[in-house]
């Protein structure tokens, strides 16, 4: 039950885009049509789901103060938490690299449609952001971290697909010249954010 609440919370209330603005760069750059937007969303979702449990284990058994005590008594007081950022980004970059190779081998069609965006997921702030939030909130076990990753990923997917659909329609409307392109996209994202804020009232 606890996990279901967390799942729904991370999709709607703590939405990566509308509540924290994470992954905004690729969100704005890749939302020109629904098909690519959906593909990128699925890839981000996938990377989040894999990277969160792995980084949770790293945090729990290597980085946290006293986490190395399984190695023996003399390590019980080591605190490696300052290494967190470098470890996490290295894990994410490596994961994305592996994922890229796997997709290229087993699903060449998906690989071709994602193109350059696949390697760029490594620098998508939504991933590192979710990992850092995971570290900050001190989740109890790896399963909770996976649920959180899946929820955040689906929330991101939802947001980018929605924006892409609106932008496809937008090309038929008359926007003031200086606002065309990126300006109006910002305003739409803001309005979508206000709409998503209506979920804030839900108590889980």
């Amino acid at each position: 039950m606890e996990n279901l609440n967390l799942f729904i919370r991370s999709i709607f209330i703590d939405n990566m885009i509308f509540a924290y603005f994470l992954g905004m760069c690729s969100f704005l750059a890749v939302s020109k049509n629904v098909k690519t937007a959906f593909g990128l969303g699925v890839a981000v979702c996938f990377v989040l789901m894999i990277s969160l449990p792995i980084t949770w284990c790293i945090n729990q058994y290597i980085l946290m103060p006293g986490a190395l005590s399984w190695l023996g008594e003399e390590y019980a007081s080591t605190d490696l938490s300052f290494l967190g950022l470098i470890m996490f980004i290295a894990v994410i970059a490596a994961l994305v690299q592996i994922l890229e190779m796997v997709i290229e081998k087993y699903a060449p069609a998906l690989y071709n449609s994602l193109g350059i965006f696949l390697p760029l997921i490594a620098v998508n702030c939504a991933i590192l952001g979710a990992v850092l939030f995971m570290q900050q909130r001190e989740f109890a076990d790896a399963w909770t971290a996976t649920v959180y990753g899946a929820g955040s990923g689906i929330g991101w997917l939802l947001a980018i697909t929605g924006l892409a659909a609106i932008r496809e329609r937008l090309s038929y409307s008359q926007v003031p010249k200086p606002l065309r392109g990126i300006g109006i996209t910002f305003i739409i994202t803001g309005l979508m954010g206000i709409a998503f804020m209506s979920f804030l009232g839900i108590k889980l």
């Binding site: 200086p178 606002l179 300006g183």
Partner: peptide
């Protein structure tokens, strides 16, 4: 609240591009 940040940035873009016509 977060959404207003987006709208403020959009306003800055609007003003900026009104003066820099070649960016439109």
């Amino acid at each position: 609240l977060p959404p207003m940040a987006l709208i403020v940035v959009a306003c800055i873009i609007w003003v900026h591009r009104s003066y820099n016509k070649d960016l439109q």
